[in-house]
Design a protein around this nucleic acid. Structure first.
Lengths: 132, 132
DNA sequence: ATGGATGCAAATATTTTGCATTTTG
DNA sequence: CAAAATGCAAAATATTTGCATCCAT
């Protein structure tokens, strides 16, 4: 059985993620790590983000252009199925939990005779601050 | 002002799309075109799908792995905001229109002080036929 | 004939992977 | 000390683009 090791690189990435509340790409995170003097390889950033995503420690989002963006959600939200409301101007992200929504959506699937229905929902808008 | 020209390649692609009711990648579509003897370049397939998507003639979906999938929806659905319920086994896709959903979702955004909220929703399940 | 469309190959962009080396537990 | 993690560069993916040629209008 495999063990997770705490390395300087992973610690640095985790610390950086904790400071952010906006989705960032692996490349952006890598650049920011270098900028603050934490020498980390790009491949390591990808590998670490990958395992964090798999462990549910970060949420992943795909850009329209197919780029993966990562964000560390609040510990609580991380363990529950939730969605994101992202500001299209500043990128700030708010977690959205909607029990009613979950039911409604699953109901649609069942209505079509589908079972084991999963769903993905993403919201994009302009936040109060950016709307002026 | 630019004009759209009807070429052998575009006609072939459009005909192929009309026969399908499952999301397919540009590469898959290209292979299928070659298989049926319609010599078409991969780049042309990408370019054509791109313009069809922009014109709202096909719907685009991004795979978890970042691949773009295309499907020609029913003419009616194509003009309205809608979502897809995709069978994870056979790929068969059903269009889902949900006025209640739209309202509900937009309400969430406004509740957080966001304006001009858009959303994306995708449903994945197992259809009756595949569930056995 | 004229400008849009095509094909091919080269270029992009992102993410993954092989492997020798370093590091953690 | 063994297993896991890292770094780098090469490889793999997916899609785009430059450009000469072709063809629909």
């Amino acid at each position: 059985m495999s063990t997770q090791r705490v390395t300087r690189q992973r610690t640095a990435l985790r610390e950086l993620l904790d400071e952010l509340d906006e989705f960032r790409s692996a490349q952006q995170l890598h650049a920011q790590l270098l900028a603050r003097g934490a020498g980390v390889g790009l491949a390591t950033v990808y590998r670490t983000l990958g395992s964090m995503a798999q462990a549910g420690e970060v949420d992943v989002l795909r850009t329209e252009q197919g780029e993966s963006l990562y964000l560390r959600c609040a510990p609580l939200a991380a363990r529950t199925h939730h969605h994101h409301l992202v500001c299209r101007v500043c990128g700030r992200t708010v977690d959205v939990a909607g029990p009613n929504l979950e039911e409604y959506v699953d109901g649609i699937g069942r209505g079509q005779g589908f079972v084991d229905v999963e769903h993905t929902l993403e919201l994009r808008g302009t936040c109060a601050a950016c709307a002026g």
